[in-house]
Amino acid sequence: MMKISGFWIGIVLMLAAGFVLAGVADNQFLFFAGYVILQGLIMAVAWNVLGGFTGYVNFGSAGFFAIGAYTAIALHQFAELPLLVLIVIAGIVCGLIGLGTGYLTLRLRGVYFAIATLAMAIVFESLITNWDYVGGSAGAYVITPAEVPFFDSFIEMMFILMLVLSLICVAVSRYLSMSRMGRGLASIRDDETAAECMGVPTLRLKLISTTVMGVMMGVAGAPFPFFVTYINPLSAFDLLIAVNAIAMPMIGGTAVWFGPVIGALLLGTIQQIVTVTISSELNILIVGVVLIAFVALAPRGIVGLFQDFARKRREGGK
């Protein structure tokens, strides 16, 4: 009971901190950087729901993200719906694609699944590039309102929106990993055939996992065109999005729900600082190098390092 209440107090505190920041801070860049970090956080948490919990590697995260963004654009062109409605619909569309991806796991295991997701993202990119309604390869512009109710600026509202969305995603991911379902997912990761023999409904669990992943990635992508005001296939399908979605959980630790959160906050903040102070190419280089270093040297991420450290201290104290 203590732990559960602790978690919810943390959620409320984060939310309150966000609102206080929105009320106090004047520097618009803070909200801009915060939005990017939180977007990365949702993608990392989403990737981990499949990759970390079940062991199926999704290289096509950028594809889901872009489909979310382009669903929002297409609906925005069609009828000027409120942003929240766009996010919900984008989540549903990406959830359905995620469900379809889940059925792929019937035939494609391990490496083949990873390659198929990567190829799938490329196909989506071809489809969007050839779809003139959403701007094709030239891209599409979005005009954002100059004034919004309750908030000082549009970007401030986007930041709070992303904060709420990411807290929801973290709560869902935590529920998935700590419930009975989480143990089922972990059994798929360790030995899928054995899990199936023991009566774990592997297909159903995998479908839930891929669908949740799709919904979260779609939700992360939907506000993106309004945030950047201009979107084209190259920016929406940016491989950096996919790499970040993998690197952040890998750095934080994939086995537990808070691993990707730690990784995303850490790597996201470093990226923002490096982009501003040095260069954006160097930022990308750092992501790659840190990813390689962590998978090679600290396979269980920062969480694993801390666990090892704690165990050594305990054993040393005896």
């Binding site: 990759g51 290289f59 993998i246 690197a247 890998m250 790659g288 190098v289 390689i292 396979p299």
Partner: peptide
């Protein structure tokens, strides 16, 4: 999983 991520990172670098 780790090997895949390793080569993915290598490609990026």
């Amino acid at each position: 999983l780790a090997g895949l991520a390793f080569f993915f990172g290598l490609m990026f670098v």
